[in-house]
């Protein structure tokens, strides 16, 4: 075996090990969800899924609440994604293209907001949202989530806009495009991988968010899956198989979205992070 073959094989082994480490928690959730009561606390743990127990996945959907939670999560995550992109694209473009007084300060100020944990902001936001009627609403959660995703997405897109030569826009304007048309028809398609990556980041944040959803939503019909799932864990009993089954189902849409977009994400991150 040559040195390069050895390195190649070693790299493959490392990749398999890392992939195994990444996949194992998901596999273990699936195995636990399909473990019978009798085997749950057996001396030797069950290592492979029991196909006879797959009915648990039908059971969790029979109650109806899980479907509602997932639908709510999707609405909140999609709303967060759309609003974040709608605000971050012009903001990132302005940071990349236009000189204005205090630009550096505003940019740093945006990043500083990332240093505040949600737990610090939850009480003031609750006080603001209450008189505005934004509690117990998708709009309130989407706004709160967007406040957290907007700074980082703005910076990602700002870096992506920086990589697009301004001459391309100038050529488009010479050909008759307005400034906004040049942004939408010429620049955005070039940075589409970064936009896709940003969309995934915003969607994941909205999908996984817990603290705001827990505090701002008291109406059971509006609760997202993150809060619903936590509700399974009780003071004196926890239906372990149900928790794992809902956990598997809860993870699937996010994993599917990531798999769908991963090519864009990798190239998008690279495009946004390398200038010149």
């Amino acid at each position: 075996m040559t040195r390069s073959e050895f390195i190649s094989h070693a790299a493959l082994v490392i990749i398999f090990v890392l992939a195994g480490l990444a996949i194992f928690p998901f596999y273990w959730m699936f195995v636990t969800a399909t473990t019978s009561d009798a085997n749950m606390f057996a001396a030797s743990p069950q290592l492979v899924p029991s196909l006879s127990q797959l009915g648990i996945f039908a059971q969790i959907f029979e109650e109806g609440a899980v479907k509602t939670w997932l639908a709510n999560s999707f609405i909140i995550a999609a709303g967060t994604t759309v609003l974040t992109l709608a605000l971050a694209i012009p903001l990132g473009y302005a940071f990349a293209r236009f000189p204005f007084w205090g630009k550096a300060g505003v940019g740093i100020g945006l990043l500083v907001t990332q240093m505040l944990p949600e737990a610090v902001l939850v009480v003031p936001l609750f006080s603001i949202f209450s008189p505005l009627g934004l509690l117990n609403s998708y709009a309130g959660l989407i706004l709160a989530n967007t406040a957290f995703t907007l700074p980082v997405i703005t910076w990602i897109l700002k870096n992506a806009f920086d990589t697009v030569p301004v001459e391309i826009e100038e050529a488009a304007v010479l050909d008759g495009c307005t400034g906004i048309n040049a942004l939408v028809r010429v620049v955005l398609p070039v940075i589409m991988p970064s936009v896709a990556a940003s969309a995934v980041i915003a969607f994941f944040h909205g999908w996984n968010e817990y603290v705001f959803a827990l505090t701002f939503i008291t109406n059971d019909t509006l609760k997202p899956a993150s809060v619903g799932l936590a509700g399974f864990i009780g003071e004196i009993s926890t239906p372990i198989q149900s928790v794992m089954a809902v956990g598997v189902v809860y993870t699937l849409p996010a994993v599917a979205l990531y798999l769908l977009m991963q090519r864009f994400i990798v190239s998008g991150m690279a495009a946004g992070s390398v200038k010149g």
Binding site: V122, V123, P124, L125, F126, S127, S130, L135, T215, T218
Partner: peptide, 9 residues
């Protein structure tokens, strides 16, 4: 948190 924000059940 909810009570501190002026609300809560």
């Amino acid at each position: 948190t909810q009570m501190g924000g002026g609300g809560g059940p």
